[in-house]
């Protein structure tokens, strides 16, 4: 029987938030192929109690346990997945830092084609047809991947569906492997915030802020959305050293597709637009009514951001109750 394998990420005992989306993508392929969905999780200890695993919606949940899996261990994961790969039509990861690290290695190990940052996927004869943004979103490529395909699905691209049945759990064997890379630690960021690439809401700032300290205005609005929002930035302010490059949105930064994107004092250089144009809703606030950002924004306010931002933050707070 053919099946689709979804590699779920967990850290510190909790599934990463992209799991339901990834399972929805796997389910989409499985339904078309008359196949089932297996999820696989890697950990150092018994994972029966892993938060959210029961309701993840896979037909089967495979657990691979190894002492080395206390930290991310690409060599062990690749070896385990490669040993199972023969039974799968497609192997899916989320296009996260971890998923993008794994997908090409698994593909190389099993001799399969690999599609990264995939935003749409479907069966096409013997192949899996994927669509993916290229040239930083300036073009969309459609590719047929023949045979077993390894696919990294971009977060936010495929909507999670209501969780299906809780799948039965079964342990799989971890084959002998050589650990070539050792993760020593994961350092938390100075402030525990959601990554700009994972956030549901991005509040991004540009040169119009005038001074790095004014990012505080953006952080205040982001805080209203709780753990769902992150602060982003244009290349100009990252290059000027106002904020870390991890916040940069655009062609040489991160490509994001949040539900809501605020561009505050961002003029809208082509490289920036390439990184955020697939956001569902874009709001721009800029004092220059001719700024290119207004051409892509769904809603714009022309005005002084120092006047608009506090009012906006208050109003959003009220609107969200």
């Amino acid at each position: 029987m053919t099946a689709i394998l979804a590699i779920l990420e967990q850290r510190d005992g909790a599934l990463r938030k992209g799991a339901p989306e990834l399972l929805a993508a796997a389910r989409q392929l499985a339904d078309a192929a008359g196949a089932t969905v297996d999820a696989i999780v890697f950990g150092a200890a018994d994972m029966a109690g892993l938060d959210g695993l029961g309701a993840a919606g896979a037909d089967r949940v495979l657990t691979a346990t190894h002492a080395d899996f206390a930290q991310y261990c690409p060599d062990g994961i690749v070896a385990t997945v490669a040993a199972l790969a023969g039974g799968y039509r497609a192997i899916l990861t989320a296009a996260t830092a971890t998923g993008k690290d794994l997908a090409p290695r698994i593909a190389a190990r099993i001799g399969a084609p690999c599609g990264m940052d995939v935003t749409g996927l479907a069966l096409q004869g013997d192949a899996i047809r994927v669509t993916r943004p290229v040239y930083a979103g300036k073009a969309i490529q459609t590719v047929d991947l023949a045979g077993t395909a390894v696919i990294a699905v971009r977060p936010g691209a495929i909507a999670a569906t209501a969780a299906g049945k809780a799948g039965a759990m079964s342990a799989v064997e971890v084959p002998a492997f050589t650990r070539r890379l050792t993760v020593r630690e994961v350092r938390a960021p100075e402030q525990a915030t959601v990554d700009v690439a994972e956030a549901r809401v991005v509040v991004a700032g540009g040169r119009g802020l005038g001074d790095p300290k004014h990012f505080a205005l953006l952080e205040e609005l982001a805080a209203v959305f709780g753990g769902d929002a992150a602060v982003g930035a244009s290349r100009a302010v990252v290059d000027a050293g106002w904020i870390g490059h991890g916040h940069q949105v655009g062609q040489t930064g991160k490509t994001v597709a949040p539900e809501l994107y605020f561009a505050i004092g961002v003029s809208g250089a082509i490289q920036h637009l390439a990184g955020m144009r697939t956001a569902k809703t874009i709001v721009a606030i800029n004092r220059d009514k001719d700024a290119p950002i207004f051409k892509v924004a769904d809603y714009g306010i022309v005005g002084d951001l120092f006047e608009v931002m506090p009012a906006l933050t208050e109003a959003v707070k009220k609107a969200r109750g």
Binding site: V134, T278, A297, D298
Partner: peptide, 25 residues
């Protein structure tokens, strides 16, 4: 084992609108 089927420009975003000026908006 990968074949490019097509390369296309992304759909244009529908035109948005300026809802107003300053905090009053």
């Amino acid at each position: 084992q990968a074949t490019i089927v097509s390369l296309a420009l992304p759909p244009e975003r529908p035109a948005g609108r300026i809802v107003g000026e300053g905090a009053a908006a």
